[in-house]
Structure formats: structure tokens, C-alpha cells
Write a protein that binds this DNA or RNA. Sequence first.
DNA 1: TAATTTAATTAGGTACACCTAAAATGGAGT
DNA 2: ACTCCATTTTAGGTGTACCTAATTAAATTA
Lengths: 228, 228
Amino acid sequence: MTTRRVNLNTESVDNYLKAIYSLGGTEEERVTSTALSERLGVAPASVTNMLQKLAASPTSFVEYEARRGVRLSAAGRRRALEILRHHRLLEAFLYKVLDYPIEEVHDEAERLEHFISERFEERIDAKLGRPKFDPHGHCIPALDGKMVKRASQPLTAIEIEGHFVVESVSDRDATLLKKLKAHGISPGVHLHVIRSTHDELVLRTGRGSKPLHLPRSVAEAVRIRFTH
Amino acid sequence: MTTRRVNLNTESVDNYLKAIYSLGGTEEERVTSTALSERLGVAPASVTNMLQKLAASPTSFVEYEARRGVRLSAAGRRRALEILRHHRLLEAFLYKVLDYPIEEVHDEAERLEHFISERFEERIDAKLGRPKFDPHGHCIPALDGKMVKRASQPLTAIEIEGHFVVESVSDRDATLLKKLKAHGISPGVHLHVIRSTHDELVLRTGRGSKPLHLPRSVAEAVRIRFTH
DNA sequence: TAATTTAATTAGGTACACCTAAAATGGAGT
DNA sequence: ACTCCATTTTAGGTGTACCTAATTAAATTA
């Protein structure tokens, strides 16, 4: 009986690897089935199934021990970063070349990232002048998977008055992104946080606009760094 | 027991509809299972299966009678033309905006055509200035499915000496396309056919180049019209 | 018309990626 | 150490899109 090897170049596998990557954090901790189940919108049993399949495959993308969670292998991380690169290059491309509104780039990129060729990837990268960041301010991994890591923190972590620069905005929620856009909050913008309460932050953006009251639920989507 | 309705928005269904459309010709004759089987690279039994599924579905894309072949319904034709529009717009986009070599646009477009959104379609159409033809000289269907139909004939149909213009080149075979490109044969180019034998055509392209001996197998990929 | 060939369909089966329901495991608190 | 319980896994099943082998229907030839 031959060991039947499965096809691992599927959209579905891509999505599992991406999810493990992003849930693993920078220290690449083991990720639980439940976390993956929630992130992917899939039943826990389905996750177990897929993880077993991935781990059993000769091209091992993951290290998996029953009931102890998963983490990416080197190959798995490489693949995850490749897709992340596709995703962010596509976002930049849709935004800059095809004039998409920022809140629409994510969903389109999410679909297309699985299907573009290396040539497509190379060409949009060239067309954009080898960008380092996507329109949300997230770093685009290089071809070899290298990524500059910047020190930043959530805007909601700010407890005191001070001056900051928006590093990035989350791309997960289009409605939130639209709100941020309406308030003029996008990567690179200067923020002057005036005060912070349990349910909102009061701040000024850019040059001399009137103070803005930002609910914490909205501020959560913003990451900032200090102006140096 | 409820009538379970199937999902017809799949890549696979798209490909069946495209194949039926292109095999049906302009008169939209019934297409046989075998023809579809060959075109799609799928077993005849699989074709029968899919056709039964399509015909049984409430959103009827096809008219199908057992052993009598299929043809597209109005809805099916609409869908087929929508995908053809995606395909050809993508080809034009890859060629003009992303500087793809002509022989590579087909395969990439073939993959992406199933996944781009209406917004993407609209934006590349705008970017290209609402083009009417793709880089191979094929007409791009309008949003409503309308397509100008031009009178043309295969270059291989030419038996006598005469002057012609290249209308289109086939996009099916990348190697053939490369050969044509090397000989300077592309849509819009003038051809002076000098003579035609059972296995080749002798002709001049453009301005005063030396006579070209074109095997019929290559000439088959070229459609021409008379210079008026 | 009967026999043969070709085309199309039915029958039964596979891989993939999901699902629900039931069982097993292992950590927390008593 | 034992019970409880959330988490995870196993068992069994679904829909999609394929497949091969066997059968049936239609077209062609003798």
C-alpha cells in the first residue's frame, strides 16, 4: 500500500498557515485548535483533521503534537510569509494603481493572494517601486521572508498626554477603516493625545483641527510610535 | 425533503460554460459530451454528471437533453460572456500595464478570471481606457455582453496571392505565439501572401522584409481580413 | 435488417474540506 | 486523589468534482 501524498497547494492550506503565523505571535508560540477554529470560522474537529493531514505530509509545514497545539516549521513559515507578501503587495497595488478605497483592498487581496503567479508578484512589486509597506502601514515581507520589525504599540495603551505618529491601522474591519479615514487617521499622520478615559481617547490630528473623541473600540485598530 | 440547490458559482461551472460557449460557435449549436470532455480534459462521464447537475438546477444555465448535447440558456450565455470579458480585460491589463510578454498573458488570465470582483473589472477597464480588443486581437465583450462581430478568416484559407491585415492570433498555444511574435506577426500587421502550398504559406510582413515560409500548423493560429 | 462501432450514460468509488455528535484527555479545584 | 469541565480528538457523514468500468443507445456498415 503506497503512502498517498496529499496536495498541499490549496487555498485552504494557505489559510491555515496564515492563521497559525498570525496567531503564533513574534515568539511563535504553539497555537491551539480552538484559536484556529475561531480565526478560520471552522469547526474544531475540522482543524484537528487538517493539522493531522499537514503534519503527516512529507512536506511538513507544521510541527504538531496531539493536544499540544501547532507551530510552523521553517517551510511553513516561508510559505506563510510568501502569502503575506502577496497579500500586502496586492493591497498596495489595488490602492495605488487601481485607486481602490482603502477599506476595500483587504477583501480583494484576500481572494487573489492565492492565485497570482510569481511573475505577477514581481511585476506589481516593480510597478510600485519595491514598496516596504502596504496602505495600512504593515510591513511587506521581502522575497526571502525578511521583514523589518518596528517598535510600536496600540493607541489604546496610551494613558498620558503626548505626541505620536500613526504606524499602522488594522485591515480587518472595513467599517472601522472608513471611520478612521473620515477622521483623517492613516499611517504617518501625527497624533496629539490630549487625554485618555476608560471609554475614549481625546486627541488632535495633523494641524490644528478640533479635538477628536475616539471610542476605544475604534482606537484599538490604530498602532502608534513616539515622535522622536 | 427539500430540493437541495447546488452552488453554481464555481470555477468548474465557469469552465464548463466557457467551453460550451466557445464550442457552440456563433450559431450556438448543441455541443456534444465528447467535445466538452476533450476541451476540458475531463472524462466523458464527468461531463454527463456536470451537465445533469447544471440542467437540474433552478438557475438553469444550460438546455440539456440526454444524448442530444447541450447549449447555453440566456443566463448561461450571459455568464460565459462575463467570464470572457474578465479574461480578455485581464489579458489586456497584464500586457499593457504589467508588461507581460504576450505568450504569458493567457495562462495568468485563465486563473484570475474566476476571482476578480466587479470593482476590479471596472478599474482595469477604466485604466485601459475601455479597450475593445485584447492583445491577441479578440473582441472584449461589453458589460451587457454585446460584442462587435468582424468578418475574418483563417490565414490557412487563403489559396491565392493577395494583401491582408492580421485580425487576431490564437492564444491557446504559447510556443506558437512566440514564433509568431518572432516573425513580427501580430494584430494589425499587413501581410502579403505570395503563395500557398499544401504544407506552408509564403508571405511578406510589413515593409520589405524577406519572404517568410510559414508552416500551415503555424498559420492556423492567425486570422486575417482583406485590406479594403 | 442485423451486426458492429462509437457515443453517452449509469454505477460505484476517491480525495478534499467541511460538518455534527460522541468519546477521550488532561488540568483545576476541592 | 477525585471529580468536573473545557478542550481536543475520533467516528461517521455531506457536497463537489473528479475517476474507471460496465452498460445502454444511437449511428454506421455490411
